[in-house]
Design a protein around this nucleic acid. Structure first.
Lengths: 327, 327
DNA sequence: CTGAAAGCGCTTACAG
DNA sequence: CTGAAAGCGCTTACAG
């Protein structure tokens, strides 16, 4: 593979001159032409590793998510990659799989590879790793130090969900959640829901299935719902879940109980997932503006990298989307 | 950030000695201890860019797929990352989005970053890019040159699907496909299906909706199915689709036509997608062994990188999975 | 076994 | 504007 030295020799100029035209700095038209010709002739490709060694700039971003099996994360990573591509950046994909050790490994690795920045959505107590020596943008979590947080308006989402259930005629509501309690942002979904229920003086119940389960605790949900049946009829008529994935699980359990959706019970999830990530909405839901979140995240990160001013927290609006499980 | 030089000074040895302990080569116990202590004390992290410059080894693999919105690709990338992680490799994620230009860009970029190898699933005519100077493993496509191809047994999948539809009592079958014609491997699904129909002397029809559509051509499918109704009853009673995504679209259109699945018509997709990529199967399907494919791909690629012998083509078995759309 | 030195492919002051 | 040279942080023969 041709190096800058080969190009210099071929063009009859110094390597410094070649470097300058490669980096768009000013050189005489004559030399510029000669260098460009040689680059073409030799099929020269710059070795970014060598450049990175000098400039400490790699044009690489590490993205850390639990995994991309989850369609929401996949969608987020999809949009991040698109944004990064536009700006000439590449992406290391790191899946923490909720494993603190793997997460720590990636955080470490990522420094050794001198990425320009990190974007992440994590659930472990790795705050200590963000020592401020590297630009970081986090989704849905606040950290101490110079870490920017991007999220959608989860509190509003909860309120919106309650509002919609009421508008559809539900009068006894249920909130069901699973997952880590570390992500303060997603906890706000329940808080917003609760606030709206109280404001409207509607009876409600908050069910928390924690995060021990490997996937969704289907049987536990079934039993919880079953225990709330009175003579075969549910004592609730509207459910809001903390994620769409959970909503799908709830729908499955409702079907086992022969409860009709949305006739008997309305269900609203959260995230706004679509069939195959492109088609119809899977359930009625509070949709996060994933694309905007990705864009805002990338923008913030690049500003941080360029040492420009950035906002500490960016909260984007959510919207209700109809997915056939509400009236 | 501490460098190898700082460590050497701190430990009172030469940089070469530090390098040796870092790379697990033999040094005296005394020096080893001193170096390790200094590494700890200074929190030294190796700069892989610098190392890569010398060794031409980056421990990085580029993975190119159309996008990870598609749950099948997401699942494949998920397993590839897991495999790579185990072996100490990192991953550049590149989404070609079916855009030849973006694909070419990544192929080029990826060379500049001197990745150790490329794994891909692409649909463009970029054969020319695989000039053999870099180890490549491709899913579902054959290339000229030293490119290893990993796929599942698509022909068998087609046969299996026909067999199952027959076993469930269907007697007039339909094959429906969309997508690129470049991926010779996936075309075999239809071929296997056809072969089995002919062998069993069952009437069948092959429908091809091409790949112009942005997503799935719902309306065109609706019309095709509608035109095959005789007095409200379908003239077919079993459908096999080239992918699960397409099967979901077909199910949607069947519902519009008030055709009951699986009572009136059985449907079998291909891929074996699950709800949220972990739960129940979305439709009855021919499941690809994604995890095994990822593992085989990574294994082959690493063998190629180490210049060991590799097989040209690896074909993994598929299985039928029950997803509620067959009898 | 260990140290000093050259070199990987770039960039960047520094003279000219 | 251009060339020669130093240096980024490593590895690797080469002497000792």
């Amino acid at each position: 593979m041709a190096t800058i030295k080969d190009v210099a020799k071929d063009a009859g100029v110094a390597v410094g001159t070649v470097s300058k035209v490669l980096n768009g700095q000013y050189v005489s038209a004559e030399n510029k032409r000669k260098v460009e010709e040689s680059v073409m002739r030799l099929g020269y490709q710059m070795n970014y590793y060598a450049r990175g060694l000098k400039t400490h700039y790699t044009y690489t971003i590490a993205v850390i998510v639990p995994d991309i099996l989850n369609p929401f994360f996949a969608c987020l990573v999809y949009h991040i990659e698109k944004e990064l591509y536009k700006l000439g950046y590449k992406m290391f994909l790191c899946q923490s799989q909720m494993d603190p050790e793997k997460e720590a490994y990636y955080l470490r690795l990522v420094r050794q590879n001198k990425v320009d920045g990190i974007m992440g959505l994590t659930f472990n107590e790795n705050d200590a790793y963000f020592t401020g020596d590297i630009p970081v943008v986090m989704f849905d979590r606040h950290f101490k130090g110079p870490v920017c947080c991007i999220s959608s308006d989860n509190f509003l989402g909860g309120e919106l969900a309650a509002e919609r259930l009421l508008a559809g005629g539900s009068r006894r509501l249920l909130f069901i959640r699973t997952g880590s309690h570390l992500s303060s942002e997603t906890l706000k979904r329940g808080q917003g829901f609760e606030a709206m229920c109280q404001k409207e003086q509607i009876p409600y119940e908050m069910l928390d299935f924690g995060d021990d389960a490997d996937f969704f605790p289907g049987q536990a949900i079934f039993e919880a719902l079953e225990s709330r049946l009175e003579g075969g009829k549910p004592s609730f008529d509207g459910i809001y879940t903390s994620t769409d994935g959970l909503a799908l699980e709830v729908l499955k359990q409702l079907e086992r109980l022969h409860i009709q959706v949305p006739q008997d019970v309305q269900v609203i999830g959260h995230d706004g997932l679509r069939r195959m990530n492109r088609g119809d909405y899977l359930v009625s839901s509070i949709a996060q503006p994933v694309e905007d979140m990705a864009r805002a995240g990338v923008e913030s990160l690049l500003r941080k990298i360029k040492k420009e001013e950035t906002e500490e927290t960016i909260i984007l609006p959510v919207t209700f989307v109809e997915g056939g499980t509400t009236r």
